[in-house]
Computed example of a mutant assay.
Amino acid sequence: MATPTGRKIIDGIKPGLRVFISAGASGIGRAIADMLILHGAKVFICDVAQGPLNDFQKEYPGHSAVLADVSSEGDMARVFADAKAVLGGLDGLINNAGVAGPTGAVEEIAIADWRRCIDVCLTGQFLCAHFAAPMLKEAGGGAIVNMSSVAGRHGYAFRTPYAAAKFGVIGLTQSLAKELGPHNIRVNAILPGIVEGPRMEAVIRARAEQLGLPYDEMAERYLEKVSLRRMVTPHDVAAMVTFLLSPMGDNLSGQSLGVDGNVETL
Rank of each mutant, 00 (worst) to 15 (best):
62 G>I: 12
63 H>Q: 15
65 A>W: 02
65 A>H: 02
66 V>H: 06
67 L>I: 08
68 A>P: 01
71 S>H: 00
71 S>W: 00
73 E>R: 09
74 G>K: 07
74 G>A: 12
74 G>W: 00
76 M>K: 01
77 A>Y: 01
81 A>N: 15
81 A>F: 04
81 A>R: 12
82 D>S: 15
82 D>H: 05
83 A>W: 08
83 A>M: 14
83 A>Y: 10
84 K>W: 00
87 L>G: 06
87 L>R: 05
90 L>A: 09
93 L>H: 10
93 L>E: 11
100 A>T: 14
101 G>N: 14
104 G>R: 10
104 G>S: 12
105 A>F: 05
106 V>K: 02
107 E>D: 15
107 E>V: 13
109 I>D: 02
110 A>F: 04
113 D>R: 05
115 R>G: 06
116 R>A: 09
118 I>L: 15
119 D>M: 01
120 V>Q: 00
123 T>P: 00
124 G>S: 05
124 G>D: 02
125 Q>E: 03
127 L>D: 00
127 L>E: 00
130 H>S: 05
132 A>L: 13
132 A>G: 11
132 A>V: 10
134 P>H: 07
134 P>V: 12
134 P>W: 09
135 M>G: 11
135 M>Q: 14
137 K>V: 15
137 K>G: 05
138 E>Y: 03
139 A>N: 13
141 G>F: 12
143 A>C: 15
144 I>Y: 13
146 N>G: 08
146 N>K: 05
146 N>I: 06
147 M>V: 14
